[in-house]
């Protein structure tokens, strides 16, 4: 998609500028102008060609978009919480269920505001500020929350982008296909330290990921 758009617009850019340069050079006041008012046929042709090119870019674009927003079925769910000015992550733990949260319960020890009354929250695993490890070739569904203002979790290599909006949960998903170290940066202006809101992300093989996750304390363990 990106390539096709680049090619079409690139050609259009060069073509228009060549024509512009030629006209500017060719009709540079040495001869009298001709009184030409319009040329409906030429205009119709140009209209048709333009509409066609637009359609060529738009239609595949919409198909590509339908794939972007189609949720993967076998997925690893991670919750991402944006706050001024760091990223925090949460895994649901053994039970696969995230404990209930409430913004009012957020403290420096409980950055997600997990409700202690909810038993499903005890085995959740919380990572404050990162880094986040993800298994390679495993579809990942990120659920975004924000405790304060808008943020946007942006890892250029993953090519997805969605705001973390306070008051709601937004989602995006992707499948990391190459092991390595990446970085998430904030791509929605979030106040005076917007530019420092980065977080490290490691894409590793499944075994290493499991090892990393198992070594992290659960919420219950962390409280002891």
């Amino acid at each position: 998609m990106m390539t096709m758009t680049t090619v079409i617009t690139g050609i259009a850019f060069v073509a228009v500028h060549l024509v512009l340069a030629y006209f500017v050079f060719r009709y540079s006041g040495r001869q009298k102008a001709e009184h030409v008012e319009d040329n409906p046929r030429l205009e119709r042709t140009l209209l048709l060609i333009t509409s066609l090119l637009i359609a060529i870019m738009l239609v595949p674009g919409l198909f590509a978009y339908s794939q972007v927003i189609a949720k993967p079925s076998d997925r690893l769910v991670v919750e991402v919480l944006g706050e001024q000015w760091r990223w925090n992550y949460r895994f649901p733990g053994e039970d696969g269920i995230f404990g209930r949260t409430d913004v009012r319960l957020i403290t420096s020890d409980n950055v997600f505001g997990i409700d202690p009354a909810d038993p499903t929250g005890a085995d959740d695993i919380v990572i404050v500020g990162g880094p986040l490890y993800l298994p390679v070739n495993q579809p990942v569904l990120l659920q975004f929350r924000s405790k304060d203002v808008l943020h946007n979790f942006w890892v250029p290599e993953f090519r997805v982008k969605i705001d973390a909006v306070p008051g709601t949960v937004t989602e995006s998903w992707f499948t990391p296909t190459r092991e390595g170290t990446y970085q998430a940066a904030c791509a929605e202006y979030c106040g005076v330290a917007h530019y420092v809101m980065t977080s490290e992300i490691h894409v590793v093989d499944a075994a290493e990921f499991e090892q990393w996750l198992a070594a992290l304390p659960t919420v219950a363990q962390a409280q002891e």
């Binding site: 001709e34 009184h35 030409v36 008012e37 319009d38 040329n39």
Partner: peptide
């Protein structure tokens, strides 16, 4: 190709 102002072209006089 070249067109002139025609009386029939209404507003253009």
């Amino acid at each position: 190709m070249t067109r002139f102002s025609q009386p029939s072209r209404g507003s253009r006089g």
